[in-house]
Design a protein around this nucleic acid. Structure first.
Lengths: 154, 154
DNA sequence: CATTATTCCTATAGATTTAATAGGATATTA
DNA sequence: TAATATCCTATTAAATCTATAGGAATAATG
């Protein structure tokens, strides 16, 4: 039940909230806008903090908003086309790294070996991020929560 | 030459210094103790900062030290038995995570799907960390720097 | 048109983490 | 005993992260 993670905080709290918010929108297969307060309460996020996050997600084009009485947020992407990697990269940003090419004397002892290690690590993480869509997550959650009924043909 | 990493600071500066210090010890195939100042200059690390790091690495048992005039540090592990994962876990610490088991209604919508995602991510990262030894890194660096001559049998 | 409910924008505060420095104690060798 | 190096503890400066807050803009409703 308890797993030890070798990598603390690979994804920030803010980023996890962003993912949860989009997940929440994706899991409600409705055309109606969902209010911040609804997302906040069902995902246990501070409403005021979530507000800022949603504004950012809107500026990135992941969600659209409607103001006023029946306001709220909707997902602008099809859930099976939006990956967690896109959201994570937007919220946490990316880092540019110099990868030392093979066959060249590197400046410091270890530059090549370590840059290659970090690159392999990055490729592995990116592979997971970019191949996980919100549709995947929603489907997985539905199956786990047992409210998934497979399409048997009788 | 420049690669974009989706995960900023997956390994802290301090941790990278620790890895570099051990790499430096591993790459010098000598029984003599290596001084902090030597490691610091060849790896471009602040000597005073490195000092603290090496004391920690000693307490973890990765290195041993000798004080006084001919003092310095030596590696206590065989380089092909020590992985980067062991060092990273010690320096950065680990995080315990609740993994929601399959088939149970989770407390919040998404708990299962996300905990599974984080677990896959952790497994992937751990796989790389725990299968990369310092001997691997030293060999890779030697090949890249072109001072590696393969053992051709003529 | 006023009211109400909602998102939007900007600023800021508090806490934590990280990176680095510093002083002096301790040990080893010559 | 002098010189050189590691050892231990404390501290600081900067950056980052999390969260809160005030008030502006917008939309629906009666």
């Amino acid at each position: 039940m308890e797993t030890v993670f070798i990598t603390p905080k690979i994804v920030s709290q803010k980023c996890r909230y962003a993912l949860r918010a989009i997940f929440e929108l994706a899991s409600r297969h409705t055309a109606e806008a969902v209010k911040i307060s609804d997302i906040a309460s069902s995902q246990a996020i501070s409403p005021r903090f979530l507000e800022n996050i949603l504004v950012e997600l809107k500026q990135a084009g992941f969600v659209a908003s409607k103001r006023g009485n029946d306001g709220g947020y909707i997902l602008t992407w099809p859930a099976d086309k939006l990956t967690v990697g896109q959201v994570i990269a937007f919220i946490q940003g990316t880092v540019k790294y110099n990868v030392v090419p093979y066959g060249i004397d590197s400046a410091k002892n270890g530059d090549y070996a370590f840059s290659h290690l970090w690159q392999r690590l990055n490729d592995s993480i990116s592979g997971i991020y970019n191949n996980t869509t919100f549709a995947d997550l929603v489907q997985e959650e539905a199956m786990a929560a047992k409210d998934y009924v497979p399409n048997y043909v009788i």
